[in-house]
Write a protein that binds this DNA or RNA. Sequence first.
DNA 1: ATAAACTTTCAATTTTTATTGAAAGTTTGA
DNA 2: TCAAACTTTCAATAAAAATTGAAAGTTTAT
Lengths: 173, 173
Amino acid sequence: MQLDEAKSRFIEGWGTLGSAWGVSRTMAQVHALLLVSAGALSAEDIMEQLQISRGNANLNVRALMDWGLVRKELRPGERREFFSAEKDIHRVATLILQERHKRELAPIMRVLGEIRQVEPSPAASPEETQAFTQMIGSIQSFAEFADRAAATLIKADENWFLSTFMKLMRPRS
Amino acid sequence: MQLDEAKSRFIEGWGTLGSAWGVSRTMAQVHALLLVSAGALSAEDIMEQLQISRGNANLNVRALMDWGLVRKELRPGERREFFSAEKDIHRVATLILQERHKRELAPIMRVLGEIRQVEPSPAASPEETQAFTQMIGSIQSFAEFADRAAATLIKADENWFLSTFMKLMRPRS
DNA sequence: ATAAACTTTCAATTTTTATTGAAAGTTTGA
DNA sequence: TCAAACTTTCAATAAAAATTGAAAGTTTAT
């Protein structure tokens, strides 16, 4: 397989993965393209390589900058902007985790905290109310657990932890 | 807040969360509804409570059964089917993890493995090819790490989780 | 101040995804 | 066997999301 084909397949695969996880296909593809490009790319480059319009390229590049995954790069004597992706995968994972925490975990946790304050009422049996409270409580504590575990693992990963853990978890290969 | 309102808010919030993570809003809402319903519900119940059509209810209930999150419940002497959700959140998390592994991680890992076989060619500099290979390699190893870590933590911390769960079951201040 | 070289915006459009509802299919009991 | 009581399917439709492209906005050099 040639490099160009490999890159295309990565871009396609990353796009598909993204859309399964609630990220727009094109945003994931722009990210993939920048991940596998040696240098920074201009809007024109992105438009051409992914066959998308200027507006679309601009929109998605800005979204990626909001996530902290892509940076503008200004070159002296050049008027146009170039874009490059964060290449350190651990840092990429951290950034994605942070954003998803902020955008999705935090809001649902707020809702869970609020609805857990449900009052007993004559309209519902105490058993039903209690079952509800227990369900919400267990979701809350699981979410907290998962959130902490993810953050801990990713942080640990950046130090000595990764190699040790991976050896322990992957006795083969 | 009354129980009914709390349930509605949960259903709405779970639906929103689902759509941010690539699950259709209605599927997540059906799941939420079954999670907070005391007993099993019929198709009619689901249709009525979520205001959706019969076909839609059927489709989503079957999708949830494919994920292993919902079970059919047959009652002696009743012709229609009732549905109930897996209520153990720990088990819910495991099932979701398993399915996402199968549906999304496995395919991208296959692609990564394939494109890593990229051959040196005169069309690309060795440096560029090597940078690509390194990027793909680091994504592979991170994905493997995250996958194993998630599975390991969910399994290993069952005791920790259960103790927290028990604490939360007690009424608080 | 002007124009060139860019970037950004957004209403219109296209594409994708979800939903409906009626028809077809299935199961059960008499 | 039939018919009632269900479930499932799927073509049509609706709704949501992504995309375009042209106009407006911005920056820079002269």
